[in-house]
Design a protein around this nucleic acid. Structure first.
Length: 421
DNA sequence: TCTGGGGTCCTAGGACCC
DNA sequence: TCTGGGGTCCTAGGACCC
């Protein structure tokens, strides 16, 4: 039986989340900004039509007269993450096999269902009604074709948000694939698309018809798989159970330039805390801690310094206290005064399941107990109720700017939406 | 003048994704 | 003044070994 994969993709997800609580903004051009209100990371259709590009720096956009009516919101990630979970729960009812691919996309395996069209309509309707989020659905025999079908569903109003790609319909295939530029294919980025164009491959149709052996020889196995997927031969499986992360990172650009080691310590403690929490949540321990600092690469007139250090842990851990201790050691080794730092971060790698790790029988088990208490208290009273002394929110001078933030309608009691809002 | 050949492992950096 | 954050995978090239 031919495989049937649907890709459900939330339209302009972050913007749609803001509109759930501000329906008055429907039809208005609006954008959501990255951390520090740096650049545009989500655009409404109206903003796209005005010509605002993805990733465009906000300071450039806001100065232009033609964009004067555009509403901008600072990224409200707790809100988006909460709404994302609600949507995922709804989707799970429509297929036993599904993969949560990203915050706003899920693959559903619809193989064997004989009511795929009705099912897709129901998905759209229920997610719109119950979560307030509009979605588009692309359906095809492989994940790559489902992605492409989703692109068509989004672009063509005639499809009404659902597009079914049929490999057997040669006429449809020709007409459709010939119109789509090759860089719309999942896995073809800027560089590959440039190389392909030099070979005379500019459309999806041309890539589909290319000599697969020659493509493999020139670009490697991933490209061979990609061409096969375009031809309807599945090479990328649905990852039903999401594998545990192999590394966990936390980093931020600062709201203002930071020079003092104290302030960097404060930021590092924040990152170490966040990482510890995530490690324990996925029941992993880390074997390596990495710490990095960055000055502003856009300020060519200032001295640049981008140090990075990796420290192996004596014993793998998920303890916030231990990760913070190593982060501080790393920071002290790489910190140099006289630079204006713009960004700092902590990363852990060499993760392994907690259950496979047998601690030294003489090891101090207090850490584990302390972390348990910390997670319990923070679970009840909110993250930050119990924290490291260095993770001092009264002195977070480095915190990114969020000047246009909407309330955390769904994740903070003090900011709940009320009638009339 | 002339400086093996092939395998493995590791790492940094690039490319891609959202 | 102002340019995100968090991932994965692949590859080239160096180090090292026999």
């Amino acid at each position: 039986m031919e495989q049937c994969i649907a890709l459900v993709d939330c339209n302009n997800f972050f913007v749609s989340c803001e509109r759930v609580f501000r329906p008055d903004l429907d039809g208005r051009p609006m954008v959501v900004l990255s951390s520090n209100d740096g650049c545009v990371i989500s655009r409404s259709d109206e903003a796209k039509r005005l010509g605002i590009r993805m990733g465009e720096p906000w300071f450039k956009v806001k100065g232009l007269h033609k964009y004067r009516d555009v509403m901008a919101f600072s990224g409200n990630f707790p809100l988006y993450s909460d709404l994302s979970n609600r949507v995922k729960c709804m989707l799970a009812d429509f297929s036993p096999v599904h993969e949560e691919y990203s915050v706003d996309e899920s693959f559903l395996d619809l193989t064997g269902f004989d009511d795929i069209r009705e099912r897709s309509c129901a998905i759209r309707e229920i997610v719109r009604k119950q979560a307030g989020i509009p979605v588009c659905i692309g359906i095809g025999p492989t994940k790559t074709l489902a992605k492409l079908a989703n692109f068509v569903a989004k672009k063509h109003p005639k499809s009404k948000g659902i597009f079914f790609y049929n490999v057997l319909d040669r006429q449809q295939k020709r007409v459709l694939l010939d119109k789509i530029p090759v860089d719309e294919v999942w896995g073809i980025g800027q560089r590959l698309s440039r190389s392909l164009r030099r070979l005379g491959i500019g459309t999806v149709c041309q890539l589909h018809d290319s000599d697969i052996k020659a493509m493999r020889a020139r670009f490697g196995v991933p490209m061979e798989r990609l061409v096969s997927e375009l031809r309807g031969i599945p090479c990328i499986e649905i990852a039903d159970i999401s594998p545990p992360r192999k590394q966990i990172m936390s980093s931020r650009s600062f709201g203002e330039r930071i020079t003092k080691q104290d302030d960097l310590e404060n930021a590092m403690a924040f990152h170490a805390t966040k990482i510890g929490r995530q490690l324990r949540k996925q029941e992993s321990v880390a074997g390596m801690v990495h710490v990095f600092l960055e000055t502003d690469p856009f300020r060519k007139d200032r001295p640049q310094y981008h140090p990075y250090i990796s420290l192996p842990l004596v014993e793998p851990t998920s303890s916030t206290v231990e990760i913070n201790r190593y982060a501080m050691i790393g920071l002290h080794r790489i910190y140099k005064s006289g630079y204006e730092y713009r960004k700092a971060g902590v990363c852990v790698s060499e993760l392994s399941p907690e259950s496979l790790f047998f601690p030294d029988m003489f090891a101090d088990s207090r850490q584990e107990r302390i972390m348990k208490v910390m997670d319990e208290i923070n679970g009840q009273f909110g993250n930050g109720a119990l924290r490291l002394s260095q993770d001092d929110w009264m002195h977070r001078y480095w915190e990114p700017r969020k000047e246009r933030m909407s309330p955390r309608y769904t994740t903070s009691w003090n900011e709940l939406a009320v009638c009339g809002d």
